[in-house]
Simulated scan of single mutants.
Amino acid sequence: MPYSKAHKLIIREKIVQNATNEFRQKGIKEVSVPQIMKGAGLTHGGFYAHFANKDQLVAEACRKAIEETINLLQGATNRKKDHVKLATVIDYYLSATHRDQMEISCILPTLSSEIARSSDEIRDAFTLEINRFFTFIAEMVGGNKQVSMAIVSAMVGAILLARSVNDPALSQNILDSTKQYAKDMASHFSQSS
């Protein structure tokens, strides 16, 4: 007896969620389809009943990861007044917790360099999702997408560099310096508009 459409959707979501978690921690190339399926409690052979190839799964995982990051950051700002929402996002994003807990962190610092060398399908999905993240931040700076891009780029770069160095003090300094810079940039924009 074939599985129902609802069951297939649940299984597909389980695969995407596991892939998202694995990609956050290890990147794309270090994670195989059999690893993803095993982590989801499924056999490798079942993969192709849900996805045409790994690229399709990576694209869906990018969507899922950015959605989760935006939801997490929105949750952190829900009860905040408008003028402190962006500062709250910056503080969280550039925290030691976000740097260190890769299993729940934003996928942008982990995957950006791999995405640049990936298929058009993956790059198309990534482009849509990073634009969604830019829009989320732009809503906190009066809709200014240019300022949003600069802030997001600084935050993503800071997390990437803070994770890359083996000097804990330098790592923390990268986060703290970028945090101040991003807040100054946002504040400057607020004063000039």
Rank of each mutant, 00 (worst) to 15 (best):
Y48C: 03
S4H: 10
I122P: 05
L128G: 11
T69F: 12
V156D: 05
F133H: 08
C62K: 13
Q25L: 00
A40Q: 05
D55L: 11
Y181R: 15
A87Y: 03
F189L: 09
H7Q: 10
G142I: 11
K54L: 05
V31S: 09
G143L: 08
S153I: 00
V89P: 06
L86R: 11
L42G: 05
I90H: 05
T178N: 03
Y3V: 05
L111K: 10
L57G: 01
A6I: 15
F133G: 00
G45P: 11
Q17Y: 02
L160T: 14
G157W: 15
V156P: 04
A182W: 07
D124T: 10
I104W: 12
T97Y: 00
A138C: 01
V89D: 05
P109M: 09
Q146N: 09
I151Q: 04
F47Y: 10
N78W: 10
L57P: 07
K14W: 04
G157S: 05
L175T: 10
H188S: 11
N173V: 04
V152D: 00
K29P: 00
M37E: 03
A125H: 00
K183F: 00
Q74G: 03
Y48A: 02
K81D: 09
R117K: 15
L108H: 03
K38Q: 04
R117L: 06
V16K: 04
L170Q: 14
I36L: 03
E139R: 13
I107C: 01
A169M: 14
R117V: 09
G45D: 08
N71R: 14
